[in-house]
Nucleic acid binder design. Structure first.
Length: 537
RNA sequence: GCUGGCGUAGCUCAAUCGGCAGAGCAGCGGUUUUGUAAACCGCAGGUUGGAGGUUCGAUUCCUCUCGCCAGCUCCA
């Protein structure tokens, strides 16, 4: 059948795949002939690649499938079936191969379980940061500017500033030095670093300036290296930790761009640690602690940790790889972190630890990464003077805790469904003036709140504004009106939809006190502050 | 980049066979007022993503292009 898989056809497929029992049988590799005769070239090709003498086949009403199995014993076990989407997929996952048409669907033993799953998909849709980012006026990505390039609107920028201020403050406490570096540099720098050889496909084209080529930076590391190199280093100076909220530009193929989660210009919360080989474990341990602290502060509690080991193509000595991998391993074990080995998935220049964040819906996102690097110290000829008076080569550790501010923000939006905790909320309080004639008073109150350091906004002139989505998303609300009127002055109260209205007097002092609770303290995950608090002054 | 789908007002969407581009919400001006997704009247809002082509006439058909979405591949 070579009909196009358009929408009207798919319900039929849904229906048909419902009846008949499954039978299973196994056959010798002559089944390759069977599939060839049927014109099912791909199945024959797969059998060809299976070393075993026998393969297992499943027969379902004349549809014979090659499958390691198991298929379910009976289609009667399928209580509920739903087609989800259809999309192309490369044969065997290789983009050089032809594209196949794939239909995605799911089934559950009962309709109820299917409904639960579908409700979760709806919830994911509701939390989509691309939708909320626009609705809450946090960010936009506009065609005229270019795909994958983010505009941070005032409300989004407020949150970013809070994130960045927190980040800087904590890094200083942790003994990092904060640095800045330019957005472009001579192409030669990227030749030295190896990016031109290994990373060119992800770089924007270089530009000619006067007599030399310049390159928009895809990474921050060469700059930090050059700061290290700017003078002689002693073993006593190590470890040296340079941190930077460094904005990088990478050419990502159009099909991979995805809201804030995959962009072309983004800011890494980057740092490079220069240390002696014997300091790797200690430094990595510190980074792990620091990472979990930061992530928990933003409300993330569940993580997936991976240790990626040496790939086939690698640089550096085997001995260094062993030392570095052991250092990462020891740090993870020392901190009691459960992790999985991802064999051969390390970067060519060294092994790494990746930490994926699990959000409230149980989806995981790659953010944090800790990578050991032997390559760059070698390429740039880094050294320090050891206790023996001789030159030694330091080890570099690349690390990002949030990964990129853009991606992290996208995840945050979805994690909180836009209803940020008070310390991060771009609007901590909305002052509603109902009816309109109280606008001046509302403005005055907003002015008072702003002067007191809160993020407040006046909004709405009609009763229904109180129930609006955007306004309901912000943490606190205070409403002002005439006694007994439709917009009667109401107590400041908590976030709409949480069923928690905290009675507070409407006097300015009361509003300030109410806001003060939990407005600046940061949440630690698992301890989401309740707003159960009253004032009766 | 690849396969498939889709671009109409700030947002969500209409527009029959190719025949005058429309509605709700948001906005603005009024009127009104029992407390959480919707009070009433009016006004304004558009180069139908862009460029070509076919046609008396294109939102509609064709070509190219830009972008978005679902995946594949890749990744922070």
């Amino acid at each position: 059948m070579t009909l196009p898989l358009t929408a009207p056809l798919l319900p039929k497929i849904s229906k048909r795949s419902r009846r008949g029992p499954w039978k299973s049988s196994s056959a010798a590799s002559r089944s390759m002939e069977f599939f060839k005769q049927r014109g099912e070239q791909y199945k024959a090709e797969i059998i060809d690649s299976i070393p075993d003498d026998t393969v297992s086949l499943y027969d379902q009403g004349g549809f014979v499938d090659l499958c390691r199995g198991p298929h379910i014993a009976s289609t009667g076990q399928i209580g509920a079936l739903k087609r989800l989407t259809s999309a192309g997929a490369y044969w065997r996952g290789d983009e050089r191969n032809p594209m196949l048409q794939r239909i995605y669907g799911t089934s559950f033993p009962t309709q109820k379980e299917l409904d639960t799953y579908l409700a979760k998909l709806e919830e994911i849709k509701r939390r989509d940061h691309r939708k909320l980012g626009k609705e809450l006026d946090l960010i936009t990505i506009q065609d005229e500017i270019g795909p994958g390039l983010v505009l941070w609107h005032p409300k989004g920028a407020r949150i970013r500033l809070l994130i960045e201020n927190f980040w800087r403050e904590q890094h200083l406490k942790q003994g990092y030095e904060l640095v800045y570096s330019p957005h472009v540099a001579r192409l030669d720098l990227w030749k030295t670093s190896g990016h031109v050889d290994y990373y060119r496909d992800n770089m924007f084209a270089s530009m000619k300036v006067e007599a030399s080529e310049y390159q928009l930076k895809p990474m921050n590391c060469p700059f930090h290296i050059m700061i290290y190199k700017s003078h002689l280093r002693s073993y006593r100076d190590l470890p040296i930790r340079y941190g930077e909220l460094g904005t990088v530009y990478r050419y990502e193929r159009t099909g991979v761009l995805h809201g804030l989660l995959r962009v072309r210009g983004f800011t890494q919360d980057d740092a490079h640690l220069f240390c002696r080989p014997d300091q790797i474990e200690e430094e990595v341990s510190r980074v792990l602690d620091f990472t979990f602290f930061i992530l928990r502060t933003f409300g993330f509690a569940d993580f997936e940790v991976y240790l990626s080991t040496r790939p086939d193509k690698f640089v550096g000595s085997e001995e260094n790889w062993i030392v570095a991998t052991a250092g990462l391993d020891a740090a993870l074990k020392g901190r009691g972190v459960a992790y999985r080995i991802d064999p051969g998935e390390g970067v060519f220049y060294g092994p790494k630890i990746d930490i994926k964040i699990k959000d409230v819906l149980g989806r995981s996102w790659q953010c944090s990464t800790v990578q050991v690097d032997f390559n760059n110290p070698e390429r740039f000829g880094l050294s320090y003077v050891g206790a023996d008076g001789k030159a030694h080569q330091p080890i570099m550790i690349h690390r990002a805790l949030m990964g990129s501010i853009e991606r992290f923000f996208g995840i945050l939006i979805e994690h909180y469904a836009g209803a940020f905790p008070t310390w991060l909320a771009p609007v901590q309080a909305v002052v509603l003036n109902i009816p309109d004639k109280h606008r001046d008073y509302a403005q005055w109150l907003v002015g008072q709140l702003t002067a007191a350091g809160y993020r407040a906004e006046a909004g709405g002139r009609r009763p229904r504004d109180a129930g609006e989505n955007g306004i309901g998303t912000w943490p606190k609300r205070s409403q002002h009106g005439d006694p007994g009127g439709p917009g009667a002055t109401r107590p400041a109260e908590g976030r709409c939809g949480q069923g928690r209205a905290d009675p507070v007097t409407i006097k300015l002092r009361g509003v300030l006190s109410f806001l003060n609770f939990g407005s600046t303290e940061r949440f630690v995950s698992g301890k989401f502050g309740s707003s159960a608090w009253t004032e009766n002054s």
